[in-house]
Write a protein that binds this DNA or RNA. Structure first.
Length: 887
RNA sequence: AGGCACGUAGCUCAGGGGGAGAGCGCUACCCUGACACGGUAGAAGUCCCGAGUUCAAAUCUCGGCGUGCCUACCA
């Protein structure tokens, strides 16, 4: 025996560093533009450049890596396109914070210097998340890494903007948008998070001009009343049919505003009177359009009341609310204040309360784009998996509203639009125009706004591949094979990529969209910094190794269910990695003496059995991965490696390997062992790339990286590895017999060191043959001193009985235990049998079952009954004899 | 308000019309020449509740209850 080359326990850290460097140096992640192999491509959901790796990234990228490594093994030419997102608002916030710590702000620096500072920040910290992805084992083609602010991608952004503008799909206008006062920018509807909030509903009376009565309106935001330009009632509302007045007085402002009639008003809400603030409410804005109302903006972009707010000018919006309420009380116009639950919008970046505000912004007209994106999923050009997400997608797409794409920040793609100071016309162009095409003026001012970050990420699947140039990369890898993402960005990102891809490439951006779950904490709570329940993937990797972590993620990635993550669960799978390691360690001890190709004519039963199982598992794993059932693939492998390969095959072949018996079979067995280990490593590699690569290099007969290995069943001797039902059935019998004997040993408290004498009686010649043929296997694994097999064997005196299939097994117990235990054991077994028989008999006594159930099912139940009755009879006989003999 | 998902062993979850499963945990025994990050055996479940369809329901349908999430222009 040659000394072990492998440590007793797997130590991941050094191994991970070594092999990742090796993969990169040898360019094993590289996609080839010119390869004749089938293409397989994935674009990474680009993490924010400010980001640090969290559980969501870990899951997302582990799944992508599993797919990419799997497809490479299958021989595909794989492109996994990596990169990061410039994350406009988030990044600007980070850099502004850094400046603030130095006592500066961006306005002191000015736009140019500020952007320079952001680029500097990016150079210094921007690769953090990329390095973390590498720790995870991500096999991206790093040479092609992209950034949404790169020159190439920026050019794509400008091109798209110009074309959409020319097609009339981008326009600028004054509308109500969501305004974040802290970020000082407009936000898209999607970027507003709604949260239930316990507020108040204020009922305010707007008196008629003569000072009498008036109309009572209700609002949750009383400060907006300062900008009211009408009061609306429903045209059919009888309460307001015969009021004489045409106007009311707007309290606190002493302004006369009209009473209008609009069917938008809900008569059943409150008094049926609605205050209309076109500049601060989206619905009121629409009403304002219909009735030609003036728009009075009372809340400024800085969150303070404007000069239009009269004496409240300069007050903070929330302070103003209090003051308005006070003033109304004093004037006796506040009829009632009641507690009220309503949802309040917050900025998704900084959680500040959003104000609907009138503002001039740029919009994309999405309806025409959305229609095609809907069709693409309806017709199956793109398949969303699991299918339930398709409904969510359709729902959102059908109700989609125009997309506000301008942001009042500095970090991002500046909108390629110029205003001519001379004639006020807007010029939209790829590059800065020298003269105004309308008036030939030279004073052109570029739009200061930048584009929503999602505008550039919407182009990601083709901009990263070189669009608008028709590159070889695009031709080879667009559309991509699959997009792997979380449902939280289904709308933000997936839907928009669909729209842009179809519009600009004339084809969907991906064939499949696999939507995975969210990673939560142990209690199912969303992980968040404020809750303090965040588990850092890097800590997990440090503690348990990347492979254990990846396998955990895959094993828990069941479709449609969130993943509850805890260190404990990863620990469990670290044991599995160690099991793989030790199984390999054991195998290598024997294989380093040499091995040979499988000789089918010389295979033992365990050999045939494990090859058959390998064949089935290979098919099951491929099928699971092809349909994105990662957890099924992982559990197939787990069960196969641990409970078949280790528990039974390795144990079964030990006597052969140690040359205790069948010396002629050793070579054949080594051939099988080698092959099963080789194939199993390849099957495992996509999930646990590091440990498999490490073992691979210890395994004789392999060349280079496991990444270049042939996927199991693709080899030339594939025919030798096939399903073998006969071997599986025989092995099942042997496992049953051995487990039965072990069960007696366990129940009777017989020490493992004590060898047992066993007699097996069966009338079935084929069973006898199997048992005789494998007597050494049984003797070794059940620890027997003797084994007798026969057709008409007498039950030996003082023995325990167990029945497996058609065989009765007697374990001699004379002098070992007291027999009341065996009585109890047999009686327990008989009780269980009686219960099973009752269920079966109930079916067979039912005439409807016999006439209506499929014949196959009836036959199966009959066979079951026969088997149970037979077993019951044998056990009863044995119980009787036990009583006769021992009492 | 609408929609989606989920409810199976103490915990985490597979399964998905015909004999209730896995991992972890638990109990007992065992350091047997790969592995104590291990081995062998065992205990443990009204498959949330109720009705319906069916010869047959944990599984399909409907209705409850509970949990989570998403969407919405709920003054």
């Amino acid at each position: 025996m040659i000394a072990n080359q492998l440590d007793k326990a797997y130590e991941p850290h050094e191994v991970e560093r070594r092999w990742y460097a090796y993969w990169e140096e040898n360019q094993l992640f590289a996609a080839k533009e010119e390869s004749p192999q089938p293409s397989y491509s994935i674009v990474i959901p680009p993490p924010n450049v400010t980001g640090v790796l969290h559980m969501g990234h870990a899951l997302n990228n582990t799944l992508q890596d599993i797919l990419c490594r799997y497809r490479r093994l299958r021989g595909d030419n794989v492109l996994w396109m990596p990169g990061t997102d410039h994350a406009g608002i988030a990044t600007q916030n980070v850099v502004e914070k850094k400046l603030a710590a130095e006592g500066k702000d961006r306005h002191q620096l000015g736009r140019g210097k500020f952007i320079e500072a952001v680029w500097q920040w990016r150079a210094q910290y921007g690769s953090a998340i990329i390095n973390q992805l590498k720790r995870l084992g991500a096999s991206c083609d790093w040479r092609r890494e992209r950034f949404t602010m790169d020159e190439g991608l920026s050019r794509a952004v400008r091109q798209v903007f110009v074309q959409l503008y020319e097609e009339g799909l981008i326009y600028r206008g004054d509308y109500i948008i969501n305004w974040c006062h802290r970020c000082h920018t407009a936000l898209a509807d999607l970027e507003v998070e709604h949260e239930e909030h316990a507020g108040h509903l204020y009922h305010i009376r707007y008196p008629f001009p003569d000072g009498s009565g008036g109309i009572v309106v209700a609002t949750t935001r009383p400060e907006t009343m300062l900008g009211d330009t009408a009061v609306a009632v429903h045209p059919d509302d009888e309460r307001y049919q015969k009021i004489g007045a045409q106007t009311v007085i707007l309290p606190l402002m002493d302004k006369e505003i009209p009473i209008i009639r609009d069917s938008y008003v809900d008569m059943s809400f409150g008094t049926g009177g609605l205050k209309v603030t076109p500049a601060h409410d989206p619905n009121d804005f629409e009403i304002g359009l219909r009735h030609n109302l003036p728009r009075v903006k009372v809340i400024g972009d800085d969150g303070r009341m404007t000069s239009e707010a009269g004496r409240f000018q300069g007050l903070d919006r929330f302070r103003c609310r209090e003051e308005v309420v006070q003033a109304l009380k004093q004037e006796n116009l506040l009829e009632k204040v009641e507690p009220y639950q309503h949802s309040v919008g917050h900025c998704y970046r900084c959680k500040t309360v959003i104000e609907p505000n009138l503002s001039r912004q740029w919009f994309v007209k999405v309806k025409p784009l959305a229609e095609k994106a809907i069709d693409a999923v309806k017709t199956g050009q793109t398949v969303i998996i699991p299918a339930m997400w398709a409904n969510t997608y359709f729902d959102w797409m059908h109700n989609i509203r125009d997309w506000c794409i301008s942001r009042q920040i500095w970090w991002g793609h500046q909108i390629p639009a110029w205003t001519c100071e001379g004639c006020d016309e807007i010029i939209v162009a790829m590059e800065a125009p020298a003269v105004c095409p309308f008036c030939k003026g030279h004073n052109l001012e570029q739009e200061t706004d930048v584009l929503d970050t999602w505008f550039s990420s919407a182009l990601w699947p083709f901009s990263t591949m070189g669009w608008p140039d028709g590159t070889p990369l695009l031709q080879k890898f667009y559309p991509t094979s699959v997009l792997v993402t979380g449902f939280d960005i289904l709308f933000f990102w997936v839907a928009r990529m669909m729209m842009m891809g179809i519009h600009f490439m004339g084809d969907v951006p991906f064939k499949d969209v696999y939507v995975h779950a969210l990673v939560r904490d142990e209690e199912g709570q969303k992980m968040s910094k404020s809750k303090g329940n965040v588990i850092d993937p890097l800590t997990i990797i440090e503690r348990y190794g990347t492979d254990a972590f990846r396998f955990t993620l895959a094993a828990f990635a069941a479709q449609g269910r969130d993943i509850k993550m805890s260190a404990k669960r990863v620990e469990g799978y670290r044991h599995f990695i160690n099991k793989v390691w030790n199984a390999a360690r054991f195998s290598l001890m024997h294989l380093d003496r040499g091995y040979q190709a499988i000789q089918s004519e010389r295979l033992s039963l365990p050999d045939r059995w494990i090859l058959s199982r390998l064949h089935q598992v290979t098919a099951a794993v491929s099928e699971a991965l092809d349909s994105y059932r990662f957890n099924d693939a992982a559990s197939e492998l787990y069960k196969f490696v641990w409970h078949e390969f280790c528990d039974w095959y390795l144990e079964a072949i030990k006597p052969v390997l140690y040359e205790k018996e069948d010396p002629g079979h050793k070579e054949a067995t080594l051939g099988v062992l080698w092959r099963v280990l080789r194939d199993t490593l390849a099957l495992l590699h996509p999930f646990i790339p590091f440990v498999t690569e490490e073992i691979w290099h210890q395994l004789p007969g392999t060349n280079g990286s496991i990444m270049t290995a042939a996927y199991p069943s693709a080899g030339t001797d594939a025919a030798r590895i096939a399903a073998d039902k006969d071997a599986e059935a025989q092995m099942a019998l042997l496992i049953g017999i051995i487990s039965g004997i072990r069960n007696i040993r366990g129940e009777m408290d017989i020490a493992p060191s004590r060898s047992l004498a066993v007699t097996i009686q069966t009338h079935h010649a084929n069973l006898r043959e199997t048992v005789e043929g494998q007597r050494n296997l049984i003797i070794n694994l059940a620890r027997l001193e003797s084994l007798t097999v026969g057709d008409h064997m007498e039950r030996p005196k003082s023995s325990a009985t167990v029945i497996v299939d058609g065989a009765t097994i007697f374990v001699r117990l004379a002098g070992i235990i007291d027999f009341t235990k065996e009585w109890e054991r047999l009686e327990k077994e008989l009780n269980k049998l009686a219960a099973d028989l009752a269920t079966v008999s109930r079916k067979l006594d039912n005439a409807d079952f016999l006439s209506k159930a499929p014949a196959q099912v009836v036959a199966k139940v009959r066979a079951q009954q026969t088997r149970l009755l037979e077993k019951q009879r044998k056990l009863q006989v044995n119980l009787e004899r036990l009583k006769e003999a021992e009492t």
